[in-house]
């Protein structure tokens, strides 16, 4: 019983900042403090009237979609190699691909910056895409790895055995069974890229992504309420995308008939 109380308090701690976000986004005051002064939608209405913000949203969307696609594609290959084949150097190679998961982001950002500058390449959204793909690939590998591990390799062999080619087998058997994992990987990579700040901060050049733009706005107290409004939309979007990702993960489990273990065991 005491454990349950502790768990609930823990959730309150976890959710405190997120709950405050919409409260201040609709509060009719430029100072972010209690007591609340009144209800307004002014801050939300200000969003579409800020061209720099709109541009940063567009940049972020392009970056997030590209990173999600690239990371999922790389993750698909790596996860399949890891789940199906034994090959020389398997552990060190996959370990290296998963490295960004534990490397401090600032190191990744600095390292990429050094090389790009040394090569004289111009910074821009595409350099952020490279960094984000590097960062998202380990997540894609982890998600898709569990999809591949959850299904019996004999299913693919059965398909070859019944006369289908490798490609047809992939299309008829593998893809339908891994599809929930692919969707889930795309959504999660998209979310990570959309929220990522440090790599974008170092590599963004003259077209900031949304988090980099927001960072710039945090210095101006009068802009804070608009940031809160935008943050509310972002959080709502993230929660929506994650719920969809979770739904697909569960559907995938139901399809392969595996036991639901929360996706991490």
């Amino acid at each position: 019983m005491t454990l349950r109380v502790y768990a609930i308090l823990y959730l309150v701690f976890l959710y405190a900042p997120i709950v405050l976000l919409p409260i201040f986004a609709f509060n009719d005051a430029t100072v972010i403090a209690f007591p609340l002064s009144g209800f307004t939608t002014e801050w939300f209405r200000a969003i579409p009237e800020t061209p720099a913000l709109i541009r940063s949203v567009q940049t972020s969307l392009v970056v997030a979609v590209s990173s999600a696609l690239l990371a999922t594609l790389l993750g698909l290959c790596t996860a399949r190699a890891g789940a199906r084949y034994a090959f020389p150097g398997k552990r060190p190679v996959t370990g290296f691909i998963m490295l960004p998961l534990v490397l401090p982001e600032i190191i990744v950002a600095v390292a990429l910056l050094v090389v790009l500058l040394a090569l004289g390449l111009p910074l821009g959204p595409w350099t952020v895409v490279l960094g984000h793909t590097l960062l998202c690939t380990p997540f894609a590998v982890a998600i898709l790895g569990s999809s591949f591990n959850n299904f019996d390799p004999a299913l693919e062999e059965a398909s070859y055995d019944l006369g289908e080619s490798r490609w047809a087998t992939f299309r008829l058997v593998t893809l339908p069974l891994v599809m929930p994992g692919i969707v889930s990987s795309l959504l999660i990579s998209f979310t990570i890229s959309l929220d990522e700040f440090i790599i974008a901060f170092f590599l963004t050049g003259t077209e900031p992504t949304l988090p980099v733009y927001l960072w710039g706005q945090l210095r101006f107290p009068q802009k804070i309420p608009v940031v809160m409004a935008l943050g509310t939309i972002l959080v709502a979007l993230s929660v929506l995308l994650l719920s969809v990702a979770e739904l697909f993960r569960r559907r995938g489990l139901a399809r392969t008939g595996a036991k639901d273990t929360g996706g991490f065991v």
Binding site: Y85, P88, V93, P100, G131, T137
Partner: peptide
């Protein structure tokens, strides 16, 4: 297995090599 595994792992490995190991 070796050949298929190496072929499949190579895109991500080369990507990580170029954008992580080299940097």
């Amino acid at each position: 297995d070796s050949a298929s595994g190496l072929l499949l792992v190579s895109p991500a490995a080369l990507f990580a090599l170029a954008l992580l190991a080299v940097p």
